[in-house]
């Protein structure tokens, strides 16, 4: 649609300018919530205000010096790391198997693996809550990790499957002809080539788990509270200004992940 030749028509130019102006408004609407927390986070604890009257790191100091915040932060880091490892370990081979092989029940299994994309988080949360209560796992870190793993798996599969589709199957075929077993071929030929997609999938998995609130809200106990759950109850009950500092750090994390995956996808394309 990027055709410059038709811009001589003044009517078209006017429409186009109008469209651009509208688009800018929507960009602003989308971006403002992510950005406004940054200036607020450098205010003081006595008032939540934009723009803040004086500049300080007070809110960050409070965050890092109170166990009520650092405990959930560490718990979230732990859950997100374990989730990423478990999700990569299962989803990367699955993505490869789905793209490269035909097998009975492939559609059903793919549907099962991708279903968390469609099933509302609240329904999964309820199911996990009922199930884990039954097997007495609710409230444990393991419950959180398992729940998050299911939730992030489809995202990892989509990322990695896209990477597998770009690989040249002849390399895998060649390795098999030379006598490499299935696993050796996978480990020495497929995995190294997939590194950018695996990294990108891992980053997604980490960020999604780190930000996840609904499933966690149902599964945490007082000792396993994650950062988003702490934030959720804090916004609901007191609106502590420290949330601005947490939000800023979360936004920076999103930005970093967003940039890194963009860079990884570019490097993947360059190969």
């Amino acid at each position: 649609m990027s055709d410059a030749f038709d811009l001589k028509d003044p009517l078209k130019r006017r429409y186009r300018r109008f469209g651009t102006a509208l688009a800018c408004l929507v960009y602003a609407f989308m971006l403002v919530p992510s950005l406004i927390v940054i200036p607020v986070s450098f205010g003081t604890q006595h008032e939540v205000r934009f723009p803040p009257r004086e500049f300080s790191f007070e809110l960050y100091q409070i965050f890092f010096s109170s166990a009520a915040w650092t405990g959930p932060l560490l718990q979230s880091l732990k859950v997100a790391c374990l989730t990423t490892i478990l999700a990569l370990a299962t989803a990367v081979p699955a993505a490869y198997g789905i793209v490269r092989h035909d097998f009975p029940g492939k559609k059903a299994i793919t549907l099962l693996l991708m279903s968390p994309l469609v099933i509302p988080a609240i329904v999964m949360a309820l199911g996990l809550y009922l199930y884990f209560s039954y097997i007495r796992l609710t409230g444990s870190t393991l419950a959180l990790v398992l729940g998050h793993t299911i939730y992030v798996t489809p995202f990892v599969i989509v990322m990695v499957a896209a990477g597998v589709q770009k690989l040249d199957p002849n390399l895998e075929f060649g390795a098999t002809l030379m006598g490499a077993g299935r696993y050796r071929m996978f480990a020495t030929v497929v995995l190294p080539q997939l590194a950018p997609s695996i990294m990108a999938g891992g980053l997604f998995a980490f960020l999604i788990s780190f930000d996840e609130v609904v499933i966690s809200w149902f599964l945490v106990s007082a000792t396993t509270t994650t950062l988003p759950v702490k934030m959720y109850s804090s916004i609901q009950w007191e609106i502590s200004p420290v949330i601005a500092a947490v939000s800023t750090m979360l936004t920076v994390l999103s930005l970093v992940v967003c940039m890194l995956t963009a860079a990884l996808q570019r490097s993947g394309r360059g190969q």
């Binding site: 971006l31 403002v32 919530p33 939540v48 939000s247 992940v257």
Partner: peptide, 19 residues
């Protein structure tokens, strides 16, 4: 578009209470 896409829903909710 991607930055808001990846921003946590809690950050957005909090931001709207500020706005």
């Amino acid at each position: 578009v991607l930055l808001p896409f990846w921003t946590s829903i809690l950050v957005k909710s909090y931001a709207f209470t500020v706005i």
